[in-house]
Design a protein around this nucleic acid. Structure first.
Length: 118
DNA sequence: CCTGTGACCGAAG
DNA sequence: TCTTCGGCCACAG
C-alpha cells in the first residue's frame, strides 16, 4: 500500500473550489486549508488562494462568497491591489462576523464545519 | 524544460 | 502569545 494522496487538482479545479466556497453559509468563515482538505488535497491551500484571487473581478452565474475564506490564524490575507469596494473585513462584518482588536476572527466561534468533515 | 512566485500552514524559538 | 522560517504545489514566462 502506498501513502500517496489523491489529487483533485486539474481541469475544473477552480470550479470545484468555487463550488466548495459556496457551501459556506452567511455569517460563517472557513480557512484556505479547510477548502483544500475538503477537495482531497490538504496541501494546496495556496492554490485555493490563487483561485479566489480574481474571484471578485470575474462574474459568476452563481455568486462566490470569497470573503468568507480567511487564513488559519483567523486573519485576512489581502493583496496590495485589493479593491476598497470589496473590503473583506467589511463584507464579513456586514454578515455579523465580529473582529478582535488585533483584526482577527475567533475561529472557534465562526469557523464553519462541513457536514462531511469530522 | 527550468525558474520564480504566491489571498498558506504549522512547527519551533 | 507572537514572530520567524522552511516547505508546499500549480502556473506563467
Amino acid at each position: 500500500m502506498t501513502s500517496e494522496e489523491p489529487r483533485v487538482v486539474g481541469p475544473g479545479w477552480h470550479a470545484k473550489v468555487f463550488a466548495m466556497v459556496r457551501r459556506v453559509p452567511r455569517g460563517r468563515v472557513a480557512t484556505y486549508g479547510q477548502i483544500a482538505a475538503q477537495l482531497g488535497s490538504p496541501r494546496v491551500a495556496r492554490q485555493v488562494g490563487f483561485a479566489l484571487a480574481g474571484a471578485w473581478r470575474v462574474e459568476h452565474d452563481e455568486p462566490v462568497p470569497w470573503h468568507r475564506i480567511i487564513n488559519a490564524k483567523g486573519g485576512i490575507s489581502t493583496r496590495p491591489d485589493a479593491d476598497p469596494d470589496h473590503d473583506q473585513r467589511r463584507l464579513l462584518e456586514r454578515e455579523g462576523v465580529e473582529f478582535r482588536p488585533n483584526g482577527t476572527v475567533d475561529l472557534r466561534r465562526y469557523r464553519w464545519s462541513f457536514p462531511d468533515e469530522g
